[in-house]
Computed example of a mutant assay.
Amino acid sequence: MSKIQAYDLKARKKVIMKNPQPFLMKNGTWALKGTSSETGIKLFKIVGKTKPEISHSRFEMFRSLFTSRQCECEKYC
């Protein structure tokens, strides 16, 4: 899983963000939304003009591995 840190206002320190999701703001800037690993409040971190790539969990990687295989009928199933 990704180890993205964001500032937690309740804990008053940087914590690891759980379940970060990319979010496109109105002005075209990308941000990450997630929850705090310590207090459980919502965190928001602005990252810039390019879309952030977040490494997925093991389950997501294995699921994408097995669902994108080529079939005997030469189609991706």
Score class of each variant (00 low, 15 high):
Asn27Met: 12
Lys18Gln: 09
Cys71Asn: 12
Pro52Gly: 06
Leu32Pro: 05
Leu9Val: 01
Gln5Lys: 15
Asn27Arg: 11
His56Leu: 05
Tyr76Pro: 03
Lys33Pro: 02
Cys77Asn: 09
Glu38His: 01
Ala11Phe: 01
Ser68Leu: 08
Ser2Leu: 12
Phe66Ile: 08
Asn19Ala: 11
Thr39Cys: 10
Ile54Tyr: 11
Glu38Arg: 02
Lys51Trp: 07
Lys14Leu: 07
Lys33Thr: 08
Leu32Cys: 06
His56Met: 06
Phe62Asp: 01
Tyr7Gly: 04
Leu32His: 09
Ser2Tyr: 00
Lys13Cys: 03
Ile16Lys: 12
Thr39Lys: 02
Ser55Phe: 03
Gly40Cys: 12
Gln5Pro: 04
Leu65Tyr: 13
Thr29Pro: 03
Ser2Phe: 00
Met61Tyr: 07
Tyr76Gly: 10
Asn19Trp: 14
Met61Pro: 00
Met17Leu: 07
Phe23Asp: 15
Ser68Pro: 02
Pro52Tyr: 04
Arg58Phe: 10
Phe62Cys: 10
Ser37Phe: 00
Tyr7Arg: 15
Ser2Gly: 09
Lys13Glu: 14
Gln21Tyr: 10
Leu24Asn: 03
Lys33Asn: 14
Lys42Val: 13
Phe44Ala: 03
Asp8Met: 09
Lys45Thr: 01
Lys13His: 04
Phe62Glu: 08
Phe59Gln: 11
Gln70Tyr: 01
Ala6Tyr: 00
Lys51Phe: 11
Tyr7Pro: 13
Leu43Ala: 00
Trp30Phe: 12
Arg58Leu: 13
Lys3Ser: 08
Glu53Tyr: 10
Ser2Lys: 13
Ser36Val: 01
Lys75His: 10
Lys75Gln: 13
Ala11Val: 13
Thr67Tyr: 09
Glu72Tyr: 05
Lys33Glu: 04
Ile46Leu: 08
Pro20Gly: 02
Ile41Glu: 14
Phe59Val: 08
Ser36Cys: 15
Lys51Ala: 06
